[in-house]
Design a protein around this nucleic acid. Structure first.
Lengths: 218, 218
DNA sequence: TATATTTGTTAGATTAGTCTAATAAATTAC
DNA sequence: GTAATTTATTAGACTAATCTAACAAATATA
């Protein structure tokens, strides 16, 4: 069994690897807000548990076992978020911190029950895939809204980099998953987009926002 | 903020105090399965946080503040047990270990939501009172079934000393809270009782079982 | 390429939470 | 009322998880 701390390192390493390929001690240190020497020593510990392949001065890599354990923690996190939103009535901007704690609960029964009550969902409230019981996780092929062009009609399918403030911003504009968006124009200077959707005929979205919205063909 | 470990000491001390009045280092040591020197040093820590009144060789006493914090952890535990049973479909014998973990979650919103969804329950699935938001908790005046006599008609209102095995035993006899029991006879030799209830016309209950069943006048 | 900067490791200290061994106080038994 | 037993404390060691300071390797820059 891994400690809560070890689980947090695994999860962070897993996420960073998916985000940017090679992960350094420095990257992990910044993500976890833990000093580099501490990270180095934890990497040695996780290496001794066969969860990480660690060699001095080389990029950090999870082993197959490490990836699986990380994915199963993320599974618990995302099932919890989905449960909190779907069954308890929380908003998608409220669930991260609670799930961050509940993901460490040791009880296969609890998560099996959530899964069952939710009808075995494939995606969490932010559109991210929920890894299956074996830790398998597949992202559908989305593109960023920022990569689309004027005239495109797309469906909003996932949101990434989901800070509370960003999610509150999306709430304020009634931007929800599943929504169809029409891109009216893209400002060449700053890549700001003007879109319409639902009853909103002309909403302006900054490039920063558009980069965090994942869409597919409508 | 108290650590998970500190919370467990507070909770154990609170429960032991309610069970037997004066609590020694030795009692707490046995309850937590932690050696006495460790308990002594934790008591000094909790004393420095004004949660426990500690004097060498004297019985341990929670301060008002310590009692309140302990009761609020028990509140989270019992709300969670109730939620797991009422909203997720777990059996009363399955919820203790999950609640034991979830009681440490730091999220007033989560427990407020459980409370709301449950309709502000006063009792947990075992009939124990749920402390209110101020840590106030009142036990109704129950007596042990073992203290009743032949001919009494009583209502089963709470169960105590609820190990998983005991709760499974109750399940196997269809013994649930709210049930009306008629005491047919009490064996003077070993205090075994013969009772009937529901469709069961003659069930024999050992003294050990009867001491763990709390009843009130039917 | 030599130097400066960034990144990573080693060494050593700190705190929380645990233990065992030794000792001391309190209680119980004779 | 002394001795035996139980209970409690002190002292010292250990692991997990963190830190800072110093040094070393790798990378970027001039």
């Amino acid at each position: 069994m891994n400690s809560l701390t070890e689980e947090n390192y695994l999860k962070a390493l897993f996420s960073l690897s998916n985000e940017k390929g090679e992960v350094n001690v420095n990257d992990l240190s910044k993500r976890l807000e833990i000093k580099m020497p501490t990270v180095t020593s934890m990497m040695k510990r996780l290496a001794s548990k066969k969860l990480v392949n660690y060699e001095s001065y080389k990029p950090l890599r999870l082993t197959i076992k490490g990836k699986k354990e990380a994915a199963l923690i993320i599974r618990k996190h995302r099932l919890t978020e989905m449960y909190l939103v779907e069954k308890m009535g929380f908003g998608w901007e409220q669930v991260h911190n609670i799930a961050e704690q509940i993901e460490h609960i040791q009880s296969p029964e609890l998560f099996a029950k959530m899964d069952e009550l939710l009808g075995y969902p494939k995606l969490d409230p932010h559109g991210s895939p929920i890894p299956d019981k074996n830790g398998k996780m597949v992202w559908k092929e989305y593109i960023k809204l920022s990569e689309c062009k004027a005239g495109d009609r797309v469906k909003l399918s996932a949101v990434i980099n989901t800070t509370t403030d960003f999610l509150k911003f999306l709430n304020s504009r009634e931007l929800k998953l599943g929504l169809k968006l029409n891109i009216k124009s893209v400002e060449p200077f700053d890549k700001t987009m003007v879109v319409n959707y639902g009853k909103r005929m002309s909403e302006t979205l900054s490039h920063t926002v558009c980069e965090r919205l994942l869409v597919e063909e409508a």
